[in-house]
Design a protein around this nucleic acid. Sequence first.
DNA 1: AACACGATGACCGACCGCCGGTCAATCAAA
DNA 2: TTTGATTGACCGGCGGTCGGTCATCGTGTT
Lengths: 210, 210
Amino acid sequence: MTRIVKDPEKRRQEIVAAAKALFQTKSYEHTSMNDVMQSLGIAKGTIYHYFKSKEELLVAVTESIVSDSLPAIQRLVTETPGSALDKLHALIASTHLTAEDGIIQEHLRQPANQGMHTRLLATAFREQAPLYAELIRLGCDEGLFHTEYPLECAEFILAAVQFLTDIAIYPWTAEDLGRRVQAFPTLVETQLQAPPGSFAFLPDIFENRR
Amino acid sequence: MTRIVKDPEKRRQEIVAAAKALFQTKSYEHTSMNDVMQSLGIAKGTIYHYFKSKEELLVAVTESIVSDSLPAIQRLVTETPGSALDKLHALIASTHLTAEDGIIQEHLRQPANQGMHTRLLATAFREQAPLYAELIRLGCDEGLFHTEYPLECAEFILAAVQFLTDIAIYPWTAEDLGRRVQAFPTLVETQLQAPPGSFAFLPDIFENRR
DNA sequence: AACACGATGACCGACCGCCGGTCAATCAAA
DNA sequence: TTTGATTGACCGGCGGTCGGTCATCGTGTT
């Protein structure tokens, strides 16, 4: 077959892009390296020239998804007017959408996809926690919140909420979810020592995510 | 080969036990159905007669691990004397050991067996959260803690702590871990509205888990 | 009471398609 | 001529299937 040589950087990005599309539509586990290679019209060896395993390709894909969505999130924070709480509200409302590249695939909700999903969450989490921490710090300056550990507090809340509402991690029942979402405002307000009602908007956001 | 027929219930338990041993020593991903079948001296079809997929076998194994360890935990709670806080202390100190069947395998820490690890965590979490909730409720009665949502509060804290300290979920750095563990006492005390210092014992426990 | 006889379903293991991964050969570009 | 990007036939092993075997046992017959 006629051989097409490309700039390695471009080729690498092509592979990541193709794999990303497939992983998001078919899930990581159900996408074979053959699928990736065929969707690009290249040989299997070429992929393995750039990534030494399927798992390494997964890491590259998740990092790509997360880092692509970060600038948009940062812009959102700086451009949303109002108090730290207003910015937090906007950030929370937008997070899930951006974290998964604009589309929440049904496949991502299936337990089959754990490998990619957990990794994606943890990676997104790692990059986004500092943003939340900054807003919490701002809220403390405004006298709205009170905490000695803004970053750890952000991590604490984000981790809990993610773990307890993500049915790709565990098939929680509708009762579990409803019960938790109802408690979240109070729990978060307690953790941040924020005025009662500050986070009353949380249930609405989770309602819209169904 | 000579055919050995056993009570289906016994056979099923044998398979789960064998799979459990292998999953814990070699990890789920690195254990093949051939391994399981050979360790029992039975045919592959027999396993598939009882479990329709490898994943279904995993579910059975995790449920077995968790439900086996539950009675011991419950006994611990009722037998530990003192306040709700004392009981909580004992419970937290013992949790990890029991949850993974007495042995924390190095393999369980490797990202390779996410599938089993996350499922194990979530299953254990589901069964154990009510226990913690009961202690929190008790603490509220004693006037030590204050919360409207004992169960959700327990879930919140457990989920956060688990997610943020488990390096099988994500390869957190030593800095991340140290930073978080240091913040945990204050965060948990805030969440439960407990007196400062109540949970000062937390860092010690995490130190011993290395 | 002893036996013969289906029916049941636990059990077997050869077999399948496919998967992730390898590598010697090839060829475009510098 | 050298370099390294690219190829694709090939491999061992995986999860899973399936036609078939045989131990067990309830039931009807003697």
